[in-house]
């Protein structure tokens, strides 16, 4: 369980997160919706330790992790699948995956097993294991980014817009992967533009607007269309 309380993050003088509080529950898919510029990616990068929160607290199973730096956060098992995938284009698929296991210095046997497991999970990555990641299609790169994150044995996966720039049929495939990971009991925090799809898979959702969490709930209990209209079309109070 990751409890985020009153997190503030700024770029210079511009405040991007103005006191965000939310919970990421174990073994479920928590989804964060919101329009562009609401601060969704900023929140991911703050949790990941790449941006530093100005104030606030983040507790992983009761332990304070705000202020830790990125390698330590990965070491705690919070691993990011970044927006635009950000694979290493000039490295082979296999090396990309091994790069995901950096936090597990002393676990050579485990890394080898996990590499095999990831290649098992994504047969297309196995086919292209010795190809440079830059030659992969967008969907394959997304699988690689997920695979790289899995190589760190994550407790919590932070996924930032995994469907961006992908064809609908590929988006479907990516969401099947996400659903499968959730069914295996992995904890997932998903930021997604594709709200319909995300709400279909989410156990819980939050709405982020202008650096504040303005709404949260369980997808089954709200009207999706109404929520999406509010999230993306900026209707402040739909009906």
């Amino acid at each position: 369980m990751l409890e985020i309380r009153d997190i503030h993050t700024s770029y210079g003088k511009i405040a991007a997160l103005k006191g965000v509080s939310l919970d990421i529950a174990d073994g479920g898919l928590t989804c964060l919706l919101g329009p562009n510029g609401a601060g969704k990616t900023t929140l991911i990068w703050t949790i990941a330790g790449i941006l530093k929160a100005r104030a606030g607290s983040m507790k992983l199973d009761g332990e304070e992790i705000a202020g830790l730096r990125a390698p330590q956060i990965v070491g705690k098992g919070i691993v990011t699948v970044p927006e635009n995938r950000l694979v290493f284009p000039e490295m082979t698929v296999r090396d990309n995956l091994i790069a995901g296991s950096f936090s597990r210095r002393k676990d050579k046997g485990g890394v080898a097993r996990d590499l095999e497991e990831v290649l098992e999970r994504f047969p297309r990555l196995r086919e292209r294991a010795n190809q440079d990641a830059g030659t992969l299609s967008g969907g394959e790169q997304q699988m690689l980014a997920v695979g790289r994150a899995l190589m760190a044995r994550p407790k919590i996966l932070l996924m930032d817009e995994p469907s961006t720039g992908l064809a609908p049929i590929i988006v479907e495939e990516i969401f099947q992967i996400i659903g499968q990971l959730r069914d295996e009991g992995k904890t997932i925090f998903l930021v997604e533009q594709n709200a319909h799809m995300a709400l279909d898979y989410a156990d819980h959702f939050y709405l982020l607007e202008q650096g504040h969490v303005t709404f949260g709930g369980v997808p089954g209990e709200v009207d999706h269309d109404e929520l999406i209209q509010r999230a993306y079309l900026g209707a402040r109070k739909a009906s």
Partner: peptide, 21 residues
């Protein structure tokens, strides 16, 4: 060597992968 290459190839991705930059 692998860490060095990740940093040369894409530093932001190296950071999210937990490389101690």
């Amino acid at each position: 060597g692998l860490e060095l290459r990740t940093l040369a190839d894409r530093p932001e991705a190296a950071r999210v992968s937990g490389v101690n930059v």
